[in-house]
Nucleic acid binder design. Structure first.
Lengths: 223, 223
DNA sequence: GCTTGAGCGATGATCGATCGTCGGTTAACG
DNA sequence: CGTTAACCGACGATCGATCATCGCTCAAGC
């Protein structure tokens, strides 16, 4: 497939590290989900999508597997794949898990971040700028980066991948664009967390946990 | 491949639900890891494994993806896959994450399990029997089932998959067979947790968290 | 008219083959 | 003899094709 045209429909023209096709496909699919081009429950036919993207079935399949691990699509053998539940109801299930993981991360990373919270500050600054420019995408990117930095600082090679598998970036985007919480409030909300790190507050974990649960439509959604 | 012979090399002869090849491959690979047939860092060549198992490259690749999501193998593009770190050091990173998730699960499932902890009791009973019979496999199975039951009772569709991706069953097996903790102690260790559920102890989450961290060689392993 | 099962199209699962890259090896050069 | 660059085998990534299964349709039977 992809006959003879230079298949650089991505923004990266001539970058040295060619990304695998499956990775590119994954990004496109994520983008489709974020932009709402795909509705919940909609059928995703591997071959059709492969044809549309000009690739074979294999990379599409691999990308689909990734999204499946993130619970963004649901597959059952011989019955195909369909867009998963992206409703606020599902978000209420994602956030408690995310909050629990980040609480652990905060506790583990406390010494390191108390020593040097500069990275966190950079991201809040980025959020502020993005909010001022009304750039939702950038705001999400910085907001997620803030939290990802905490995960990274925890220094646990298992914790970060588990968190990544929650597709926080996507859910944050959906939350901002669909539920439409107050936008630029976010930057300010993160200040107390940095402060807690600075003063080595042993409750920083719980603080962060509550901070995240505050994002969910209902703070606690169980059973 | 698999020329003409009925490809039922699995134990399930004539079961109605044929399992996909990739699933069978995944189980075999997990077994290889548990039994120690594969050493850490060892190279896993997709095609060689495919030939050995009498299947094509595709199902092996899919199974490999699953194990990769569980951090049991490590892959990098064009450089192949190798067996991941299965050392106690890594286990010390898995258990805090697991403990955090199960703490959340316990808190969410408290009302339900306080109402009816019979399932939990069944599993501790199973653990006792398995310990008496010195059946390590069965003991692991019941021990993990105990915890999985808590996850399931939490009723969070995101929490359970996240927990499953930690490969708790495999790590428990490794912990028991390699580090060789006291065996039949496990059944008794779980009694206080059931009791905590029964009396609706709001600290049951923390109790469970500490219970799990007690399994790790060092209770807290950070940085 | 309602049920039921054969037929059919759509689709996921798997396969065998090819393409391009990576890492090590070897041979030319200084 | 040490360095470097072309070469080569191995392997992952991707492809196009085939196979088996599922859900649906429609007609036969009651």
């Amino acid at each position: 497939m992809n006959g003879e045209a230079p298949h650089n429909n991505a923004e990266s023209t001539g970058n040295l590290t060619r990304t695998p096709l499956s990775e590119q496909v994954r990004r496109i699919m994520l983008d489709n989900l974020v932009r709402g081009r795909w509705q919940a429950g909609q059928r995703i036919v591997e071959r059709r999508l492969a044809t549309e993207l000009g690739v074979s079935q294999a990379p599409v399949r691999e990308a689909l597997r990734d999204l499946q691990a993130m619970r963004l699509v649901e597959s059952s053998p011989h019955r195909g794949t369909r867009v998963g539940d992206l409703s606020p109801r599902r978000l209420c299930q994602v956030y408690p898990v995310r909050a629990a993981l980040e609480r652990l991360a905060a506790e583990l990373s406390l010494p390191r971040l108390a020593e040097d919270p500069s990275r966190l500050e950079e991201h809040t600054e980025g959020m502020r700028r993005a909010a001022a420019a009304e750039d939702v995408d950038a705001q999400v990117r910085h907001g997620v980066a803030f939290h990802r930095e905490i995960l990274r600082a925890a220094g646990n090679a298992v914790l970060l991948p588990s968190w990544e598998s929650l597709a926080v970036e996507l859910w944050t985007h959906l939350s901002l664009t669909r539920v439409r919480t107050g936008l630029h409030e976010n930057a300010r909300d993160h200040e107390p967390i940095i402060e807690a790190f600075r003063r080595r507050d042993p409750d920083v974990g719980r603080l962060l946990q509550l901070h995240i649960l505050g994002y969910a439509p209902q703070p606690i959604g169980a059973s």
